[in-house]
């Protein structure tokens, strides 16, 4: 299949290993990616928290650019995904806003493509069986808890993610790779998101609680699909509590025997190599 690709700002910086692993995994699964032409930032939480119109217009510019290629757009960053879906929702519901935004951008928005995240594409379009068929290195020894966070799931009628209070797609993908996904009650909890600079102590409190719960669930790592969650989990947990964190695509790449994981793991703050080595995976 072929889709448009919107990396967003994080994937070119703090989330670099997510960008590289999404690309590696997509190519291995025959998902062809075409980057959205001259994309710009989606505005993230800072736009919608301070200026509603801006928070719709910034993603709209990218949606319009993606529409030109006539393919659904893959948005791996959960924060960008949320802003794209929200903008689509508001443009559908509010025709006055839609005309105003089209006027500012100088182009028509046709609402002709779907916004997709890679969990959904791999689970639903590629399929668990096809994925299983490509595994060359079972991830035996890895016991991840799946951390979906907020932005892929809520609000549910906008995000259209399966089972928003107890999602399972990421868990199913992990089990397919041979990892032993652990059940826990914090799948959809909040890490504090963008408060990480302006109010660090709240994020530290939330992340430490998540780490305690992951430890209690007998997990030895966490897996996520959000660069905001990843950065908070990887950098804000207390030393005595912290577990390695992975982007789910890094683990898919590892199980598929692709090039890259060793390089990406070096970019993590909490070094996952002891766990990877003791599990005999590299």
């Amino acid at each position: 299949m072929k889709v448009s690709y919107y990396p967003g700002c994080s994937l070119h910086a703090t989330g670099r290993e997510y960008d590289e692993s999404v690309k590696a995994v997509s190519s291995a699964l025959q998902i062809e990616l075409k980057e959205v032409d001259d994309w710009s930032c989606c505005g993230a939480s800072s736009a919608h928290m301070t200026n509603y119109k801006l928070s719709v217009a910034l993603p709209a510019r990218n949606l319009i650019a993606a529409e030109k290629d006539g393919m659904d757009v893959m948005v791996p960053c959960a924060a960008c995904f949320n802003r794209f879906k929200m903008a689509q929702h508001h443009l559908r519901e509010n025709s006055a806003l839609k005309s105003e935004v089209e006027g500012i951008i100088g182009k028509e928005y046709r609402d002709s493509i779907a916004v997709r995240n890679p969990i959904d594409i791999i689970y639903n379009d590629i399929g668990i069986d096809a994925l299983a068929g490509k595994v060359t290195r079972k991830l035996t020894g890895l016991k991840p808890v799946s951390y979906y966070g907020c932005l892929l799931l809520r609000p549910p009628e906008v995000c259209e993610f399966e089972n928003y209070e107890n999602p399972y797609m990421l868990d199913a993908i992990m089990n397919t790779l041979g990892a032993e996904s652990k059940n826990w009650s914090c799948k959809t909890d909040c890490c504090g998101g963008s408060l990480t600079l302006g109010k660090t102590e709240i994020v530290v409190h939330l992340v430490n609680k998540l780490m305690r719960m992951a430890n209690e669930a007998d997990a030895n790592c966490l897996v996520t699909a959000c660069p905001v969650c990843f950065a908070n989990l990887d950098m804000r947990a207390g030393k005595d509590l912290s577990l390695p964190v992975f982007y789910f695509t890094e683990l898919v790449a590892l199980a598929l025997g692709l090039q890259g994981p060793e390089k990406w793991f070096k970019m993590h703050n909490v070094d996952p190599m002891p766990l990877i080595k003791s599990s005999g995976l590299l």
Binding site: C9, S10, H12, A13, T14, W39, S40, C41, G43, A44, S45, S46, A47, M49, T50, N51, L54, L58, S194, L195, L197, G198, K199
Partner: peptide, 28 residues
């Protein structure tokens, strides 16, 4: 009341306005 939170949002958005995309070192 939470001046630093607003300052973060302002720094973020002014970085977008300048470059179209966030340059994290400059934004921080």
């Amino acid at each position: 009341r939470e001046k630093n939170i607003l300052k973060f949002h302002e720094a973020f958005l002014s970085s977008v306005k300048m470059g179209g995309r966030i340059n994290e070192p400059f934004m921080i």
